[in-house]
Write a protein that binds this DNA or RNA. Structure first.
Lengths: 171, 171
DNA sequence: GCCAGAGCTGCGAAATCCGCAGTCTTCTCA
DNA sequence: TGAGAAGACTGCGGATTTCGCAGCTCTGGC
C-alpha cells in the first residue's frame, strides 16, 4: 500500500541534495515530468520523454526515483459520492495539551482522509468521509471527542464539492 | 487536461443506471478495480483482471469507462511543499447572496485547489496553495475578498500536513 | 590523474496495451 | 413471442511499451 503521505520521511529515503525543509530539490525537468503525469498518470514514458526532452529510459528512472522518494504518487482518485460515501465533513478541532498526539490519533482513523495542523482559531482541521449521517455522528461525537486533549470541535458538513484538482506545479 | 473534478456532469456522460443523486451506480467489480488503482495507478490491466476476476480487455474497457464518466481519474499527486509551494491555507468564507456564484468565481482561481459548499458557520471552504506569504496575502485579501457576495473570511494557515490519503472505497 | 557515483542513452527481450471480431445476456417493442 | 438493439465479456494478434543492462559522459574528491 502506498497511497499515503506522511510528512516526515526516514533518512535513507532522502536525496543527497536537499533544501532547508528536508525535502529533495527538484529541477525543471522533474517538474515537467510531474506535470505530464498530473495530466495523465498512465502516460507512456516515451511520450513524456518527447515532451520534456529526455530518453524513455531516463524518464523511467526519474519517475521511479520520484516515487521511491515519496515526492509523488500515481493513484486513482474518485468522487467519494460516487463510491458510496454520502457524507463528508470538515471538522475544526480545539486542542488542549499536545496537538501532535491528537493529530496522530486522528491519522490512525480510517475515516479521516486529511489531517492538518493549522494556525488560526482551530488547532487541527480534519476531513472526514462517511457512509451516512449515523456514521458521521458516530465518528465525530464518539470517536473524535473521545481523544484525550480534544476540547471542542466544530463541523462543516459538505453540501457540494465544487472543485478538486491535483495540479500543483503546473502554473 | 483532465485533472479536474466538477460536481455536475453533462447529461450525455451519464450512465444509464444512475442513483438518486445523478451519479453512476458502481458494482462490486468496478469498486475492486478502483481499489487496485488506488494502490498503484499504473498497475497493468492483466494484473487487475486477475485480482478482480475479469479478463484484461474487460478491465481495460471498464477503466476507460470510469475515466470517461469522470468517476475516477488517474493522476500524479505530490506533496506541495516539495514542488515549491510553501504556504497553504484553508479559508472559511461567509457569503451574502448567491453562494453558487461565489463558488464559481473561486473555482476559476488557479490557487484554489479545493472548493466546497458547506453547512455550518461557513458557507464555503476553500483550500489555497501559494508560493509564499506574499502570494497568500494577495490571494486572500485582494482576490477572494474582492469577489461580490463575499462578506468575510477566516484563514487557517497550514503548519503541518499530517495525512493525505486517496483510499475511499478501500474499507 | 584516477576513481567512484550519478545520470543519460541505446538496444533487445519480455510484457503490456489496443483494436476488433465474435459470443452471450438482457431489454425493448412490435 | 420473436426480432433486434445494446451492453458487457472473451480471445487473439499486431503494435507499443516496459524493463533490465551494458556502456558512455560528466562531476567531485583525493
Amino acid at each position: 500500500m502506498q497511497s499515503e503521505f506522511v510528512a516526515s520521511r526516514s533518512a535513507d529515503q532522502r536525496d543527497s541534495r536537499e533544501s532547508r525543509n528536508g525535502n529533495p530539490q527538484l529541477d525543471a525537468v522533474s517538474l515537467a515530468i510531474i506535470e505530464q503525469l498530473q495530466e495523465d498518470g498512465r502516460r507512456p514514458y516515451a511520450a513524456i520523454g518527447k515532451a520534456v526532452g529526455l530518453s524513455e529510459a531516463a524518464v523511467r528512472q526519474r519517475v521511479q526515483k520520484l516515487l521511491d522518494q515519496g515526492v509523488m504518487q500515481i493513484v486513482a482518485v474518485t468522487d467519494p459520492l460516487t463510491v458510496g460515501f454520502r457524507r463528508q465533513a470538515m471538522v475544526g478541532i480545539h486542542v488542549e495539551g499536545d496537538v501532535e498526539s491528537v493529530a496522530d490519533a486522528l491519522t490512525a482513523m480510517s475515516e479521516c482522509e486529511y489531517v492538518v495542523m493549522t494556525a488560526g482559531s482551530f488547532d487541527l482541521m480534519v476531513e472526514i468521509v462517511c457512509e451516512d449521517d449515523d456514521h458521521l455522528l458516530d465518528v465525530i461525537n464518539k470517536r473524535i471527542r473521545a481523544i484525550p486533549g480534544v476540547r471542542s470541535t466544530e463541523s462543516f458538513v459538505y453540501l457540494k464539492l465544487k472543485k478538486q484538482t491535483y495540479m500543483w506545479g503546473t502554473r
